[in-house]
Amino acid sequence: MDKIEGKKELKILPFDKKLGDIEELTYVLNRAYKQLAEMGLKYVASHQDSSITLERIEHAHCLVAMEGEKIVGTISFYPPGSKMACDWYRKEGIGVIGQFGVLPELQGAGLGTQLLDEVELYAHKQIDVNEVSLDTAEKADHLITMYAKRGYKFVEYVDWDMTNYRSVIMSKSIK
């Protein structure tokens, strides 16, 4: 439990319907990705509905950052073999991070770092995970820079059917 710049105490916990509903989680993702959508980048999380959120976290270890009773951030970890959308994700020992977002008013205050720390620690404890990978838009320089500072390295480009940009796949060894 930490405090971030004068905000209420924050807790990072596994998502549970008792903590918040899927609509609230979807709202956080939509708001978190709004700035990227305003840059013209069509991330699915910027406009997905609750059924897509539920589908995307169904087989994931989904964490939420709670400020009191309110979800203010989220991140999901997908074990090896559960995300098969590109060649790199299909490799043995590759876990994938996704559905990562923090409400705009808390971005830049360290909550995203805490969420990444927690999910990387979780992945490190998994026997079958050697690396964690993620993807973001090629034009999202600020995100690529943030991930690179955390040790993520460029792997490949992928052009997903559901987006309007080329994605950068990045990966980090955790063993």
Rank of each mutant, 00 (worst) to 15 (best):
D135S: 15
K7Q: 13
I127V: 14
K139A: 15
A65T: 03
N130M: 14
K83S: 04
F154K: 12
D141E: 15
V168H: 07
K70A: 02
V168Q: 06
E118P: 01
S51F: 10
D2P: 07
Q126E: 15
A32S: 13
V28A: 04
E55C: 03
L29C: 03
D161Y: 15
K153N: 11
D159L: 13
K70Q: 08
L115M: 05
P104K: 05
D117T: 07
G6S: 00
L134Q: 01
H124W: 14
S171P: 00
E9C: 03
G40I: 01
T74E: 10
K149N: 14
N164M: 12
K172G: 04
S167I: 11
E5V: 06
Y157V: 05
T53V: 11
V119W: 00
P79G: 09
Q114H: 15
G81Q: 13
G110K: 02
I169K: 03
G68R: 11
H142S: 14
I12L: 08
Y157G: 05
N30Y: 00
I75N: 05
H61F: 12
Q126N: 12
L54H: 09
A137Q: 13
D49I: 03
Y147S: 11
E58R: 12
E131H: 15
I144P: 06
L25W: 09
I75F: 03
G112L: 05
Q114C: 11
K18I: 08
S51Q: 11
D87M: 02
L121S: 15
E58N: 13
